[in-house]
Design a protein around this nucleic acid. Structure first.
Lengths: 210, 210
DNA sequence: GTATAGTTACTGCAACTTGCAGTATGCGGG
DNA sequence: CCCGCATACTGCAAGTTGCAGTAACTATAC
């Protein structure tokens, strides 16, 4: 049982799903907390069934056959045990930051390009979540009694995205002041920032909507 | 060539390293942008050598033998080509958020426990970076001419960590108001938050050090 | 009616990545 | 000289990803 198995099991606890529905739903709803590939999500319910945590029923809806998975009592019990365990440390992969760390091996355009990439990736997700919240107001939540959870979760996403977007603007401003990418070292501006960070203070101005 | 290969290649572009040094250095410096296991980092320089992007020299320093890797001209050229390519979308794995999404399957203590886990994981990293910045002020940067990059990178980490810590406090406050975890749905507080998010506004108060 | 292009619903496989156990060497203390 | 510990790796099984491939239904055209 990996964390991904438990994530799928938790979805199964909401209602029975076909493998396809389960996969789509997992990609949509877990994308920002526990991003997993379609391929993996397809194989998880099979393993759950093997372990006795779910049962499979072959249905014939829509002319085509599909396997519908339902959680078992053992599954619910395993889920309850997992809920109380220590969570894994969070993990952030941001290739744009990797490019920033090695910005001296390229031009200013290269780093700024990486920041543009990051901005557009974050922007897409940001916009999607704002729209999702709009749909919740219109009663569009698939499990209305769980709205409080989705919304609290969404507050995390929005705060994070806003912070990253504000930081991108800030970083662009800093980089614009560089004559080139390499060999700058401890400039006046860098020293000022280092002092702020060593004192654990924010380097961004106050947010515009706080 | 994976992104991890390029990350190691970029490190090799700074100076020649032994596999051990390279691995340690990569774990320390890339942890927050591109976290990779020790095991993988050990094998990357071997592959780089196979592909002709690095050369190996068997040295005998400290009595024990070690393989020292040096970047080649082909390696530098490959690195320059990579620097200009599109970056991958960022990826965030936060198991504590997964627990929040399924909080209705456990108790309030369970969710709050997950938030505590997240707080302590983030707190460790946060503190480590603040201390690192203190050491930079004392001239402790391993590549002084690259300080401007490390510090700009660190501003990202600190802003992110501060945001997450502020969000944890906020989320605790919300959860404290819940009578239980399940079946709350669109409460008054949730509706207020949903409206704010749909209007793309922050739900956290202004930061305390902005 | 049937060719064909598109969508739905998957499966197989190679390559990438991780965690952990295991190995071998050097080094300090008793 | 032996023991425990740190250093410097390697092997391997299991987890994960991307992509190519398959097969069935669906819509539109001719």
């Amino acid at each position: 049982m990996t964390t991904s198995s438990y994530a799928v099991l938790a979805l199964l606890d909401l209602k029975p799903w076909s493998a396809y529905e389960l996969t789509q739903q997992a990609q949509r709803s877990l994308r920002y907390a526990w991003p997993k590939s379609e391929r993996l999500l397809y194989s998880e319910p099979k393993k759950l069934a093997e372990w006795g945590y779910a049962t499979v029923a072959e249905e014939d809806e829509g002319g085509r056959q599909r396997s519908v998975y339902t959680i078992t009592e053992e599954g619910r019990s395993a889920l309850r045990d997992w809920i109380g365990t220590r969570t894994q440390a969070p993990r952030l992969e941001v290739e744009a930051l990797l490019r920033l760390l090695f910005a001296d091996q390229g031009s200013k355009e290269d780093v700024l390009g990486a920041l543009d990439d990051l901005e557009s990736d974050i922007g897409e997700h940001h916009q999607a979540i704002v729209e999702l919240m709009g749909s919740y107001l219109d009663g569009g939540h698939p499990f209305p009694q769980r709205t409080h959870l989705s919304v609290l979760f969404a507050t995390f996403q929005i705060e994070l995205f806003k912070t990253i977007e504000r930081w991108i603007e800030f970083a662009r401003g800093e980089i614009d002041e560089w004559p080139q990418t390499a060999e700058l070292g401890m400039t006046e501006s860098t020293e000022r920032l280092t002092r702020l960070l060593a004192a654990d203070e924010s380097v961004l101005g106050p947010s515009h909507d706080g």
